[in-house]
């Protein structure tokens, strides 16, 4: 199998160098762009498997680049951002970014996010049963088993879990979840989300206080994934 190609769009030479080495030594083919304009042109010429996009670019903001790319590029875009910019992150995610990382980030985490994003590019899942950790989610029968024991979920809890499971590894914003489960009119009713995530955790997690499946990304949303 040929190496997956990744385009890095970042104006900082040090970060580019670091990412180039880290990614190449992990068997990715790396392209580098310094500016948003250059990056967009490179994606147009030769669409990569994944784009790592710095949100704070000098020429045009990462948000604009994201908008440009998303009008025709449908593979993964991971945003690199600085800390304490939750609103930036949320708006990038709501505008089609696949995931985000805040600088400074650890290489191991970067690689995990890249793997998970590329996996989602490649598998257009038509499976009706999803296995994650000890959970077996049967979308058709609307049944969830943990260690083969049937869990009693309410209809809303099941819808929420199914939505999470279909987006495994991906951070989902509060607004997105509210819109998908309760509808557009409920987009600001985060209290519903808090309550249902809480009750869902009590049913699926080993310890609802130390959640492994549904983790909180404070100020941004929730991420559902393999318990580590």
């Amino acid at each position: 199998m040929s190496k997956a190609e990744i385009l890095v769009i970042d104006d900082e030479p040090q970060i580019r160098k670091l990412l180039e080495i880290a990614l190449e030594s992990n068997d990715y083919k790396v392209w580098l762009a310094e500016t948003g304009k250059e990056g967009v042109a490179m994606v147009a010429n030769h669409p990569p498997e994944l784009v790592l996009l710095d949100i704070g670019l000098p020429d045009k903001s990462g948000h604009e680049v994201l908008g440009d790319l998303r009008s025709w590029y449908n593979k993964s875009i991971i945003i690199l951002s600085v800390q304490n910019s939750e609103s930036d992150i949320v708006s990038a995610l709501d505008n089609g970014a696949t995931d985000y990382l805040t600088k400074p980030f650890r290489t191991a985490e970067l690689l995990a996010r890249i793997r998970s994003a590329i996996r989602r590019n490649q598998t257009v899942s038509s499976n009706t049963t999803i296995h994650i950790g000890n959970l077996k989610i049967d979308l058709a029968a609307r049944a969830v088993r943990k260690n083969s024991e049937l869990l009693k979920l309410t209809s809303t809890e099941f819808n929420l879990l199914a939505l999470f499971a279909k987006n495994e590894g991906r951070v989902l914003t509060h607004q997105f979840l509210l819109k998908e489960i309760w509808g557009v009119a409920y987009q600001t009713e985060t209290q519903y989300l808090r309550v249902f995530v809480g009750s869902l955790r009590k049913k699926i997690e080993d310890d609802a206080n130390q959640p492994k499946y549904i983790t909180t990304e404070s100020g941004v949303g929730y991420r559902f994934g393999q318990p580590s």
């Binding site: 509060h174 985060t190 808090r194 995530v197 809480g198 909180t216």
Partner: peptide
């Protein structure tokens, strides 16, 4: 950075419903 944001007075709280049990654990 937090200090200078606080001192500049540009930091506006964005209030939303919050599960403090969850917040403490995170």
């Amino acid at each position: 950075l937090s200090m200078s944001r606080l001192e500049s007075g540009t930091l506006q709280p964005k209030k939303d419903w919050c599960d403090l049990n969850d917040l403490v654990h995170s």
